[in-house]
Design a protein around this nucleic acid. Sequence first.
DNA 1: AAGTCGTGGCC
DNA 2: TGGCCAAGACT
Length: 363
Amino acid sequence: MKNSNLSKSLLIWYDSNKRDLPWRSTKATPYNVWLSEVMLQQTTVVTVIPRYTSFLERWPDVRALAGASIDDVLHEWQGLGYYARARNLHRCARVVVEQYGGVFPDDEAALKTLPGIGDYTAAAIVAIAFGNFSTPVDGNIIRVISRLEGLEQVMPAGKGAVRMRMAELVPAKRPGDFVQGLMDLGSMVCTVRKPDCPACPWGSTRGSTRGSARAGPCRARAGGKPQSYPRKAAKKPRPTRYGVIFWLVDQAGRVMTRRRDETGLLGGMMEFPSTPWREQDWTHEDVLSNVPVAGAGLDWQDVPGTVRHTFTHFHLELRILKGHLSSMPETAHDHAIWSVPHDFVDLALPTVMKKVAKLVYSS
DNA sequence: AAGTCGTGGCC
DNA sequence: TGGCCAAGACT
């Protein structure tokens, strides 16, 4: 099948199966497309939709976002994960306002210099928001194109081959719709586990003579095992790390929290003080040398149960020790922020820390 | 260039 | 239930 026919079939399929996503059609401004694409990085559409809507309501344009505090942005982002996205989003908004007069550049290379905008997102903005030719390659497109061509390259390392094929397929006319159609196809039809090949616009075509079926253009389908594409490398096993949380309550009933370092895991988010998280489990003695307040004379009590949480590259098991301060704490330990539980909603708490609070209050 | 970086849903 | 995966970026 000719490239132009592949593109046309896909666009026809897109038009008749289009989902009404809140960042599509008339709402596909550069700001909206950028925001949605960053939120959609490694995150499902179902998860993003409500978060996108409330985010946009709070900060309707790039100037509003640039004027926000990083604390408010992280708070709005809580639970979405990959918190560097929120920090970069905020930085990017400020750069666009300060260096581009509040107008997103339509140039792919310029977009890629902005914080949090990489190969995929820059290309997606060019095609979807500006309607210009580009060749974005995301997980869906890797899967669809790998299957279409039966690519044997290990992905995502071999995504260059996908991008080259995309350059032949993306039409000059509706590049944004084509690209979104490809991603819709990947998430609705050409899925990871059970591809619905009969529903594919690139399915086998009817032969004109006697209605016999001819082979379609998809190599993976012709091979009988479309699920075996894309080829992927074996993954490393995830180790388990251990930590002990100090649930410290002062005489006013406030609980000690603190802000994590700006970079790294859960960067900038709030936490309940903890020992480091390490692969070796903690002895009671080791734990006590990490108590977050000076003058240890505290009576620590075990909170029954364990918090289990899995990050991208390790499992985490947290035990919790509860202690009550008999006198008011000395000044500014670790820049502690003391909050009554009622006010936890004001903190940018990552999900693992919400699990900690939940276990404490259920015991 | 391989590791780091969240979370929830799926089977 | 534990591994896999999702509109990836950054170091």
